[in-house]
């Protein structure tokens, strides 16, 4: 059986909020190392990969591999019944029909319990190769969100160009064009504001802003975001979570321009 207790329901609420517009039904694959999720969007342009390691829970118990097929809009409805600071316990039997979510207020005077019916989801799992990216940009997540939002007003796509000079987000649209260039920046007093660019070779790729803006819904999960690029491979946008856990988004590049 599975029993996993999160100190704060907020983590799962934010994760589900960040991915629910991209993927609808997905398997939460549970085993003794934690809870993992991999799902593509309907048009197979983007892939979500989440890992909540067992250390992120206390306690965590999962004796056998269990796939919890859950509709994210149902899960959202139930998670809305939890306060951010509630303790969240997820429970399921070994061959479950339902998953049980229990919310306890931190001062323990309220206990809410919900069951969500599970679905049988036949999901394709993709092998994501270990990649040494040509460029990795680490920047404040709100800054990345803002750039995506600003450029979305002008165009449907953005070119991301990394050179030793910095990283340039540029777009071209009907009303004109725009570009934001960031250089490496280190602020000892506010390390959350740091911008780090690790570059082994220059990269230039074009991506859909609609998808990038969607990924930015995860901005509340981490103060900084890693943007990893290599020519002709999907972009990786990574939000690191506590206890070595993560929420990653992969996005296929635009081709032929």
């Amino acid at each position: 059986m599975l029993e996993a207790r999160l100190e704060q329901a907020e983590l799962l609420k934010k994760v589900v909020d960040a991915i629910k517009d991209l993927v609808q039904d997905c398997n939460f694959d549970c085993n003794d190392s934690g809870v993992a999720l991999q799902a593509m969007d309907n048009s197979h342009v983007a892939l979500v990969s989440m890992m909540l390691k067992s250390e992120a829970f206390s306690p965590f118990r999962c004796d056998r591999n269990i796939a919890l097929g859950i509709n994210l809009s149902s899960l959202t409805k139930v998670l809305r019944c939890a306060q951010n600071n509630d303790i969240l316990t997820v429970k399921a039997e070994d061959a479950p029909d339902v998953v049980n979510l229990m919310f306890e207020s931190s001062d323990s005077d309220r206990l809410s319990e919900y069951d969500i019916k599970l679905m049988d989801i036949d999901q394709e799992h993709l092998g994501i190769p270990e990649t040494e990216y040509a460029a990795t940009v680490t920047m404040p997540s709100p800054e990345f969100q803002r750039i995506c939002r600003d450029l979305s007003a002008l165009s449907e796509s953005v070119s991301i160009e990394c050179t030793k000079e910095g990283v340039k987000f540029a777009c071209n649209g009907d009303i004109g064009s725009g570009a934001v260039t960031l250089r490496s920046h280190s602020d000892v007093e506010n390390p959350d504001q740091n911008i780090k660019i690790d570059l082994t070779e220059p990269v230039a790729l074009t991506f859909s802003l609609k998808y990038l803006s969607n990924f930015c819904k995860a901005s509340g999960l981490a103060k900084s975001v890693n943007i990893c690029l290599s020519n002709e491979v999907p972009l990786l946008v990574e939000y690191g979570l506590a206890a070595n856990s993560y929420l990653r988004f992969y996005l296929a590049p635009k081709i032929g321009d």
Binding site: M40, H44, H125, G127, P234, L251, A252
Partner: peptide, 14 residues
């Protein structure tokens, strides 16, 4: 979609 790559062309099915 024209011009948009497909993620399955990059990551193989397991």
């Amino acid at each position: 979609k024209a011009g948009q790559g497909n993620i399955m062309n990059f990551f193989a099915k397991k």
